[in-house]
Design a protein around this nucleic acid. Structure first.
Lengths: 194, 194
DNA sequence: CCGATTTCTTGAACTGGGTCAATGGAATCA
DNA sequence: TGATTCCATTGACCCAGTTCAAGAAATCGG
């Protein structure tokens, strides 16, 4: 039984944190559903219920909220090796505040919450994997929050360039602006003043 | 062997998410070290290593960073029932960016990272408890980040009043200002314009 | 390869919130 | 109880970042 390519990416990621037996791995992979989205297609729309969490195999997704004036605010980008969803909706099954949309053609592996919880009972080490992921995501999000409170727009842009070098020249500037929390016009000026 | 009062607070919190046997509970409680801090005393200073995570039994702590101009930015308040530390330092054992300080006299239960990890091996359900805590903390922090990006200072103040009604009239305004990300002067004007 | 859409830039006027400074009020502690 | 420190308010001015508008450049779907 040959392992499929997309799963390998995830298995590599897993094994950086835990080690599973062949059986456990098979059990886990059996619950993952490969899924492709084209640029501008949605994995989740604002107001829907987030059934799945998605592991990005290739491509890039964005998770964002739309404010009362219709402006998008990007909570995060998900590049290969990251999981993405509206965590709040995924956990509580309430309507999502976020939309999750492909920035470019993207390959995903989907895992439903119910499958995830079942797997936690069968494979405690898998719960460890996600516990570690949550810890790391929390650290990242806390740092981002502090950055937003302490840094200027220019400094946030510079930090973005260091954190996501693979995205800087690959995605529209307006997305970067929406991530660091400024208008596209102002980001344009920041770059001009370089 | 009578259970001590502070531990009961934590046990009540635990049992909202998982159920442990007598033995497991005893094993867990044995690793918790009661600790008291007076107002303005530190649990952790910027630059130290966060040995412990702390459960707040009573009182109130603040976790904050000091920027290059010497201004404090409060990442979060921890009121009874919440855990607090510099998570990044607690996990990685690197120097903390945050300080954790008592806003008022506070009773804590301390748990070291090494004890925590040992307990995860002995009591898988405890790892579940912390996995759930991390999930919830991540949801909260993500919402806060979005609020900072989408709301005005006045709206953030109103939201603070709804989220922390028990703190609004109990802590200095400048702490609230530092949490919602404005100067004390501007918060004063927001309230005046009511 | 072309038309349509989306993206990027620049200018000018504007505003939410910051800075600095001064004053009076409230805790805290000897 | 008085001294000391910390806290809240207010005024006058300032600035980082926004808004609106309008072209130019790049990209994309067919």
């Amino acid at each position: 039984m040959p392992a499929s390519i997309p799963h390998d990416t995830l298995v590599a990621n897993l094994s950086r944190h835990i080690s599973l037996s062949e059986d456990e791995l098979a059990l886990f992979c059996a619950r993952l559903r490969p899924h492709k989205v084209k640029r501008k297609e949605f994995l989740l729309r604002q107001g829907e219920i987030a059934r799945d969490s998605a592991f990005v195999v290739s491509g890039c997704m964005k998770a964002y909220a739309t404010d009362t004036n219709g402006f998008e605010h990007i909570l995060r980008f998900a590049t290969p090796g990251w999981w993405v969803s509206d965590l709040s909706s995924f956990i509580t099954k309430r309507q999502s505040q976020l939309a999750v949309e492909a920035v470019r053609d993207t390959q995903l592996l989907l895992l439903s919450r119910s499958d995830q919880l079942e797997l936690f009972d069968k494979i405690p080490k898998l719960e460890r994997y996600f516990r570690i992921l949550m810890e790391n995501a929390l650290v990242t999000t806390q740092m981002r929050l502090m950055d937003n409170m302490t840094l200027t727009a220019r400094e946030r842009y510079q930090r973005f360039c260091r954190m996501y070098p693979e995205l800087v020249n690959e995605i529209p500037l307006k997305l970067i602006a929406s991530f660091i929390g400024v208008t596209p016009e102002f980001l344009s000026r920041i770059r001009a003043a370089k």
